[in-house]
Design a protein around this nucleic acid. Structure first.
Lengths: 192, 192, 192, 192
DNA sequence: TATGAATGAGGATTCATTCAT
DNA sequence: CATGAATGAATCCTCATTCAT
């Protein structure tokens, strides 16, 4: 089942809107559909038709990042060393979230608006699970931590980095990486 | 220096309002001063006088928990084993936050409304620092983690627990404890 | 440069609102945008969209009178006798203000909301200036009085008439005319 | 009938309040009884007891100026030349109003709060009447202008000065004087 | 008499969403 | 499909005045 093909002008509007959504997300501006419409020089209703809720737009903006992460996870599964595979992927996840402000809220949301987002998140969680299972099997990861914990822990890392004093600019990415390192140590610990 | 003494009727209203604020916090209801006024059967302006902003009320609601934590930290400093001291206090912090929903937002807020809150948080951060320093000196804590990281990490743990599937009910407290354990492992790891 | 064309329904609302604004002004009711909305049977936000502030509405209500005055001033400039030209125009100004209660506050306001109002007032002041210059040149007007004084003096006349005992009804218009006469005498006096 | 004598502490409060009222008037701060109470470090109800309305306070503040003016009028009646008497007194009135910001609103108000204010205003109007009558009798003042016009015209002069561009600072006093001059010319004109 | 807490109507303004054009 | 005007509930906050202490 593919998305219905859009008329050419509709597609142009769609892109415009997503572009603005991206800009808002990057600037930290809360996504209000009215404002987006104005900035995109498009009618409000047009925005509403394409994206019934702010979340829908945000998730659309987040989609490329999400899919890139899924692709990355697939590559990670090819890595031989289970620990390296898990570690690198977690690192990539954190970097992606630090780079793309649209990602964290989508990850943390208990429910998502777009089927595609739901799908990607499910895939991601699943792959987290596989990577974790392999690490578990190899005895390098704490068995107390289950696959249902991976996403929350990621979100926790990002949130913690946001709470840290110099939460803005590139400092936050570095902090997030540092916190992830601590998490990884904790994850591996019990495996020794 | 004590708080200015309130007239008896004023004190009654103050308590009523705080009580309602507590209820709202517990139920997860966002604290809107108007609603609080209605629920407390008190004029709006009365609420505004006592608590100029929702944050002020929330922090007042959080105050006992905050002070209990400070008291606990003082006791923790008496513990001989640096690691045990640190661990127990972090555990207590997490438990407190899991028990009292008013605490996490106050901890995570970059700026606070009440001087007393600011004071308590500063004390808490300071004591975190002392406990961490002692652990550092004893060589049982990762030197990469500084005292400016303790509060953010705590917040991250709580946030992660909130993202986890069964985020409600007593499950969250358990999850938070579990995540803290991972964090503690990560914290101790590099000390071997 | 014309005003942006309005959609038909929007135009209908606009007119409704202005009409109510006019009624309020005539009745001396202070223009509160909420009340206007109710009276116009229109959503509050509709009023706010068209007229962001009460002043904007008041000035819109005053616009016809303002423009009529500008037109009148142009005709006045055609009059040969400098004194007659000035006198008649001042008389017309006072009559207009006595007739249209929306005018005096717009005249007296140090700053105006609408560009069109600002433009009209500037024109008016300019024309006052020209008429006064001609009177000065002809030696029939007190050189102590400058063009920057004309508007204030008009406002003073209206205010004075409002302070007079029988400030209401047609009496005020007559009083205003009488006060203007005094002003004109004072203006001409030094010319002898 | 004299005012009831105040207890000593009550008198002290009364003075404090009036002093603050004066300060507010001078600074152009709108007189809000609550603010006055805070500034005077006095309970709100205390202010309300002494001055049931803002106008009552304002008029109390204006009282000395008002009485000085009455006294001045009495001296003016002693002047031989009717025109000089009238002119000087009008000038004094304008100067007083330009100097004391509490005066203009009290003059312009259609009704006053304090009996004493009403009395003073009545006296003033009456003396204006006498001075004008004498000028009329001497044939030096326009008979069209009656005693009921004097106060309004004064108010008009002040208002006009307030509308003038540089309405602030000492400029306004000068402008007011200038406008009064015009008025006087107009008043005398028909007498020639 | 003095105090200042309490009141709650009143006012301004925004925002997500719908619907006529 | 696109537009953008209209909606009106919802929210926030202030202020003049009263009344219990």
């Amino acid at each position: 089942m593919t998305t219905a093909p859009l008329r050419k002008d509709a597609a142009r509007n769609w892109h415009r809107i997503v572009e603005i959504g991206r800009r808002f997300a990057d600037e930290g501006t809360p996504i209000q559909l009215n404002d987006v419409a104005r900035a995109a020089e498009v009618g409000v209703a047009t925005v509403y038709r394409h994206f019934p809720t702010p979340e829908a737009l945000l998730e659309t903006v987040a989609t490329p990042g999400l899919e890139a992460l899924v692709a990355h996870a697939e590559r990670a599964l090819a890595e031989d060393d289970p620990w390296v595979a898990l570690r690198d992927f977690l690192l990539a996840s954190v970097d992606a979230q630090a780079t793309d402000p649209a990602l964290p809220p989508v990850f943390a949301a208990p429910v998502n608006a777009l089927p595609s987002t739901i799908g990607s998140k499910r895939q991601l969680i699943d792959m987290f699970g596989q990577l974790l299972d392999r690490a578990h099997d190899a005895g390098v990861a704490d068995p107390e931590v289950t696959k249902a914990d991976m996403l929350p822990l990621m979100c926790g890392v990002m949130f913690a980095a946001g709470v840290h004093q110099d939460a803005d600019g590139p400092g936050r990415a570095a902090t997030a990486r540092r916190y992830l390192t601590v998490l990884l140590e904790g994850l591996r610990k019990a495996s020794a």
